[in-house]
Design a binder for these strands. Structure first.
Length: 470
RNA sequence: GCCCCCAUCGUCUAGCCUGGCCUAGGACGCCGGCCUUUCACGCCGGAAACGCGGGUUCAAAUCCCGCUGGGGGUGCCA
């Protein structure tokens, strides 16, 4: 059975690149009717934070990535200890007493000479007696994995093809830190093996780690899983997407009114393309059906907010049910300070959903529907005075007391009548009403506005404007 | 520096494996037009790419080599 995992470290908010990795991992598992595991990689005590773990989980849930199993590495330390001791006793690892300062010096020396740095391996040949002596002196030590010499590690990557790396390029690496905690390259192997992960799907920044891990799999006699390394996501300047590019976290887009369905859909399109179709909008279920690693592009992709916006707009205006839209919109309007009644909101969204791309834009665009008062600038007022606004509004108010404009069409009829009776241009009527109702010259259609706004609010606004016109 | 990965419109990509159907397709964005009470939406149209140089071949975006360019890694981070 296929089993994949997403293994973030709680050192920050869920990054778009990681989110995409999680999505691909998830889709692959679901496509093969397999299992998906969430594992928090919090072995670095310095940098791991509980609040980031919480945020990570919230964002994954928001994206609707449900997992079948959950683990936290910090709760599994005894397990790693056990396997580390096994490596030690079987001669695959050794104690290293080099201090960080020493290593740093060696690294700088190598750099100065212009040669590639790798750990010298000097502690590799310490005798038992020497080791005991150092230990009794109270010297702390790390455990290093003994990298075998003379052969390249070759693996078949499901996205990149065959990759060959010579382990001598990186040298003996640390598996247990001097404080006793295990390092990433070690725990990842123990966990993936014990959890029965069949396909390791992760970012391509992990390619250099893969041979290290394969070596450990072999030393521990674990079956080696398949690997798939996804290309990274780049910013506009083609460097790895990072904070300086602006919004890089799922949270950021969520707070700006992007929908989980849209972000999910867009992220899939970054680096993957559906076979035999020119469609781009897919539900999660459809994606599960058609997703395959073989259709993942091996070149890195530039993140494009404009396309995300467009997809988000498509979801708002044509994919989501009104009820869902209401649920998404509600908190945004609420936090803008508007009092929102559900049926009214539903009607407003139904009639306006084709005119904004994000919920943030929606709040701005829908301002006239929720604000009690209209602000009107001197400029707009003088525009009104240039037209026969007073007569138009007066006549309109009169008609309003007779007709009930509850649909955009009836509003159009009313406007036509006013136009005819006063002998003015249609534009004059529309512009007058628009300014009177919103204080602005652009925005949602006046027919929609007038037929949706509560009658009372319409009358109040018109009367108020009338008073300004004297 | 060293190691690894990658290379089609500005961006995401199809085509590449299995050379001819490619006058290189789609999408976002951009430009123009239409619709229209404005802004959007929608519809129609347009500009826009095989990085360069060698090979192989009757034929190369597709195969091979080199160059250039870009990305990633080079931690007692993950």
């Amino acid at each position: 059975m296929v089993k994949t995992r997403f293994a973030p470290s709680p050192t920050g908010l869920l990054h778009l690149g990681n989110a995409r990795t999680a999505i691909f991992s998830y889709l692959f598992a679901r496509h093969h009717k397999g299992k998906f595991v969430l594992r928090i990689e919090d072995t670095d005590r310095e940098r791991s934070r509980k609040e980031y773990e919480k945020a990570l989980i919230e964002d994954l849930e928001w994206l609707r990535l449900e997992w079948d199993e959950f683990y936290r590495q910090s709760e599994r330390f005894p397990l790693y200890r056990e396997f580390a001791e096994r490596l030690l006793s079987e001669g695959y690892a050794y104690a290293c007493f080099c201090t960080p300062e020493e290593l740093e010096r060696e690294r700088k020396e190598a750099q100065a000479k212009g040669i590639a740095y790798r750990y010298s391996g000097k502690c590799r040949y310490l005798t038992k007696v020497q080791i005991e002596k150092l230990k009794t002196e109270g010297r702390t030590f790390t455990l290093r994995f003994k990298v075998p010499e003379g052969q390249s590690v070759v693996f078949e990557d499901l996205v990149k093809g065959y990759i060959s790396i010579n382990p001598e390029d990186f040298g003996d690496f640390v598996i247990i830190r001097s404080d006793g905690t295990p390092t990433y390259n070690f725990v990842v192997v123990v966990d993936d093996a014990l959890m029965g992960i069949t396909h390791v799907i992760r970012g391509e920044d992990h390619i250099p780690n893969t041979p290290k891990q394969i070596l450990i799999y072999k030393a521990l006699n674990f079956p080696v899983p398949k690997f798939a390394h996804l290309p990274v996501i780049l910013g506009r300047d083609r460097s790895k997407l990072s904070k300086r590019h602006g919004g890089v976290s799922v949270r950021y887009y969520r707070e700006r009114g992007f929908l989980p369905e849209a972000l999910f859909n867009y992220l899939c399109l970054l680096g993957w393309s559906p076979p035999n179709t020119e469609r781009e909008i897919f539900s999660k279920e459809e994606l599960i059906e058609i997703f395959d690693l073989k259709d993942v592009n091996s070149a890195p992709a530039v993140f494009d907010v404009d396309k995300l916006r467009w997809i988000n707009g498509v979801y708002i205006r044509e994919i989501l049910s009104v009820d869902k839209l209401v649920n998404y919109a509600y908190p945004f309007l609420k936090s803008a300070g508007y009092k929102v009644e559900e049926n009214y909101l539903k009607l407003v969204l139904e009639r306006t959903r084709d005119s904004y791309d994000t919920l943030e834009d929606m709040v701005k665009r829908l301002k006239p529907f929720f604000e009690e008062e209209v602000e009107i600038s001197q400029e707009m007022l003088s525009k009104l005075k240039q037209m026969r606004s007073k007569e138009i509004i007066e006549l309109f108010l009169k008609k309003l007391s007779v007709f009930k404009p509850d649909s955009p069409e009836t509003v159009k009829d009313l406007a036509r009548k006013v136009t005819k009776e006063l002998g003015v241009k249609p534009k004059e009527v529309w512009h007058t009403l628009r300014i009177a109702l919103t204080g602005r010259l652009e925005g949602i259609g006046v027919d929609i506005l007038l037929s949706t706004l509560p009658r009372e609010r319409v009358e109040n606004r018109l009367k108020y404007i009338l008073s300004l016109l004297g």
